[in-house]
Simulated scan of single mutants.
Amino acid sequence: MPELRATTLVDAPLRTVAAALLDARLLARSIRGLGVRIGGGPVLYAGAELAGSVGPVDGTLLVTRADTTGVSAELVGGPLPRFVLITDLLHTGGGTMVVDSVEWTSPGGPFGRLADVIVGRGLALKVLQARARAVSARSRELVDAKVVVAAAIVRDGLLLVQQRGYPAQLAGGWELPGGRVEPGEDDRAAVVRECAEELGVGVEAGGQLGPDIPLRSDHLLRVYRADLVSGEPRALDHPEVRWVGAGELDGLAWLPADRVVLPELHGLLDPPDQV
């Protein structure tokens, strides 16, 4: 199986670079004009399927990994039997090492060997070069991004979620409660304040779950585990709040950014032998 690999050192923290990789628009921009087309939602998450094409043949880009370790995706239905893009992240003393690789399987016979040289290697090299430039640029943008926090509040094996009422493009979707971090405010202090304002409850914020998640061009979402310490949650700022179990997580109409942390939410709710 042919493979090409490239490494890039990005002067940004690993979590920031991981957030840049989750920006689906970055992926689309980095391969535009290379005979590859990608369309879909604003962020990548494990299990996402994005419409795409390689050359004249339509296919589907299936995301198989999207977390703080990197991103993996496979183009299914393109002109090559297999075309996989893998990005791994490594922390170093000088920044974050981005290791990009492309693996593909060419068709059999003389045409396959020709496609390997002309289509496979040529396209793979262009994808790697464009991707490296795009990741570096997006990471630099996100270094000073404003932060939005969300709370994963668990009680008796259930997770608290809320339904958005505004803006119009988000109304009806489900998310974890939270809001913007104020200037000079600590992330965890913001979690406590937002839960008091939105839900009328007291919480204790714990560790971060999953990666930083890109929202708008200059905003990041960070999700924190939180324990309810006082009060009963009420929908003070949104139409509805609800406690949901592990079996309901995947079927909920999540907003795209919150869907990124579904694996971590399952880890909080699923019994140990089912994780």
Results as ranks from 00 to 15, higher is better:
V260P: 00
D250R: 12
T60R: 07
V244Q: 06
D100G: 02
L114C: 08
L209F: 09
E240K: 00
W174Y: 09
G247S: 08
I38A: 13
E248D: 09
G41V: 08
A19S: 14
L142H: 09
A253F: 14
R82C: 08
M1C: 05
S53T: 01
L26P: 02
T7G: 15
P13D: 03
A24S: 09
V191T: 02
V201L: 12
L44Q: 09
V98H: 00
A171T: 03
G251E: 00
T105M: 05
S217Y: 10
L249K: 01
P263Y: 08
V43K: 01
Y45N: 12
L228K: 05
D186C: 10
S106A: 13
V117P: 04
M97P: 00
C195W: 01
V54M: 14
V192R: 02
P2T: 10
R121C: 08
D273E: 15
T68N: 15
L252W: 04
S72W: 14
L128M: 08
Q274T: 13
L9D: 05
L123T: 15
G245W: 03
T69Q: 09
V43S: 07
A151I: 01
A132P: 13
E185Q: 13
H91I: 10
P110S: 06
D273F: 14
V192F: 06
A151F: 01
P239G: 05
E74G: 05
L159G: 05
A132M: 12
Y166R: 14
A132H: 15
S53N: 03
V57W: 13
L199N: 04
M97I: 10
D186T: 11
E198Y: 05
A196P: 03
G210S: 12
G47P: 01
L262Y: 10
G267W: 07
A18F: 15
R25H: 13
V241C: 04
P56R: 14
I153W: 02
P239E: 03
V244P: 02
L50D: 00
H266Q: 15
V191E: 03
V149K: 01
G52K: 00
R234D: 03
A171Q: 02
V192S: 02
R259A: 06
L159T: 09
E232S: 14
R133E: 08
V63H: 04
A134P: 09
L269R: 12
P214W: 00
R32L: 11
G200A: 11
G40H: 11
T105S: 09
E197D: 14
E204L: 01
L61V: 14
R216T: 14
G40F: 13
G184K: 07
G55W: 04
V36D: 00
L262S: 11
L34K: 15
V154M: 02
V57N: 03
